[in-house]
Computed example of a mutant assay.
Amino acid sequence: MPESKIDETDRRILAALQQDAHMTMERLAELVGLSPSPCARRVRNLEAAGVIKRYVAVVDQEKVGLPVSVFASIRLERQREDELDRFARAIARWPEIVECYLMTGQRDYLLRIVVKDLPAYEAFLKRTLTRLEGVASIESSFALSQVKHAQALPVD
């Protein structure tokens, strides 16, 4: 479904589902001004088109014992396609890495890593990131506090 095919009603559906994907179809339809059947059809179309990728529960990072967020900037020795692919495959295996971005500028990747404490990060760093072939440098920064963390995209 190209962006041009997403109309205002679809955007209202997406905005509502990003706030509460657990609501009933009746409630969603009421919020967006449709009856349940056409609303459900639109949701199925958004799912089929890949606009809605999946439904998840947003878990409180601190309440599950992972209060530390570390941002690691990674520079590779070379930026050839096979090296980039190998790095991406390797980091996909580690659940501690919750976000990874291929970057422009001084560093090749920016990772967000969640751990329970500083010793846990040290262990993760030593047993994983420093052992990856082709990594030239790793620079870690620790988040002091989270000012904003939005799950919802500004679709409306």
Rank of each mutant, 00 (worst) to 15 (best):
K5R: 03
V115H: 11
K5N: 07
A57L: 08
R44T: 02
L28C: 05
Q151Y: 15
A49L: 01
K126I: 07
Y55R: 05
L110M: 12
E96H: 13
A48C: 03
L28R: 02
D82K: 15
I97D: 14
M103H: 14
E26P: 00
I113M: 10
R127A: 08
E99K: 15
A21P: 00
A49Y: 01
I74F: 15
H22R: 04
K53R: 13
K63A: 02
L125P: 10
R41Q: 10
V68G: 02
E77V: 08
D10I: 02
R107C: 06
D20I: 02
E3Q: 06
D7M: 07
L111T: 05
A49S: 06
A57S: 05
K53C: 05
D82F: 11
R12F: 00
M25V: 07
T9L: 04
E99P: 11
P119K: 12
E122C: 10
R11F: 02
T130K: 05
A92M: 11
V56R: 09
T9P: 09
S140D: 13
Q151K: 14
L102N: 12
E8V: 05
E122Y: 10
P154S: 15
Q146E: 09
A72P: 10
R42V: 01
E81M: 13
V115D: 11
P38Q: 00
A48Q: 13
G65M: 14
P67F: 14
K53N: 11
Q106G: 13
P119G: 07
L125G: 12
E47K: 04
H149D: 13
C100N: 15
C39Q: 03
R131Q: 15
E96V: 07
L144G: 00
G50H: 03
P36A: 02
I13E: 00
P154T: 08
L14E: 01
I91L: 12
R27I: 02
G65V: 00
R11D: 07
G65N: 08
S37W: 00
N45D: 10
S140I: 03
I138S: 04
A120H: 13
R12S: 07
T9C: 05
Y101K: 15
P154G: 14
V32W: 06
P38M: 04
N45Q: 12
L17H: 01
Q151N: 08
H149W: 11
K116G: 08
